[in-house]
């Protein structure tokens, strides 16, 4: 159940997030696990409480999964909240992890979706594959 990541794995995750999300214009990209641990955070979260964001996102995802069950779905693969200036995109990475992307109004949701899908495919084997 427990997750141990080597420096090499962490570095790999960092470079995937930087290349596919930050360089595509995202302000921030975070990988968290579904019990609320913050695995990696990238970008400029100076004003952002990333530890709280990780805990709340995990809980939010868990609650949404329960809602999914109530309406006969397995789970929702992604969640998206649109703000006035900042948007937030959550997507499942395997069974145990969530990728959180923050981006502004001049970045398209389509691009973020596309890139998150690619990032997810790269991350799954790093995070233990069997997920």
């Amino acid at each position: 159940m427990d997750l141990v990541l080597s420096k090499e794995s962490i570095d790999n995750i960092i470079s995937v997030l930087d290349e596919d999300l930050l360089r595509a214009g995202a302000d921030c990209a975070l990988l968290v696990d579904r019990s609320g641990n913050l695995i990696v955070n990238r970008g400029d979260p100076a004003t952002l409480d990333v530890v709280a964001l990780a805990a709340l996102s995990a809980a939010n995802f868990g609650a949404t999964a329960e809602i999914a069950k109530l309406i006969g779905e397995d789970d929702f693969a992604l969640l998206f909240h649109k703000g006035k200036n900042e948007n937030i995109h959550f997507s499942k990475v395997g069974k145990g992890f969530i990728l959180i992307t923050l981006f502004g109004k001049d970045v398209s949701l389509g691009l973020i979706r596309l890139n998150t899908a690619r990032v997810t495919d790269t991350l799954i084997p790093i995070l233990g594959g069997e997920q």
Binding site: D2, L3, S6
Partner: peptide
Amino acid sequence: MSFIDLSKNEVQCKI
């Protein structure tokens, strides 16, 4: 589940 980050020598646990 605990998470151990060997790049920072850090362990995170949930109580």
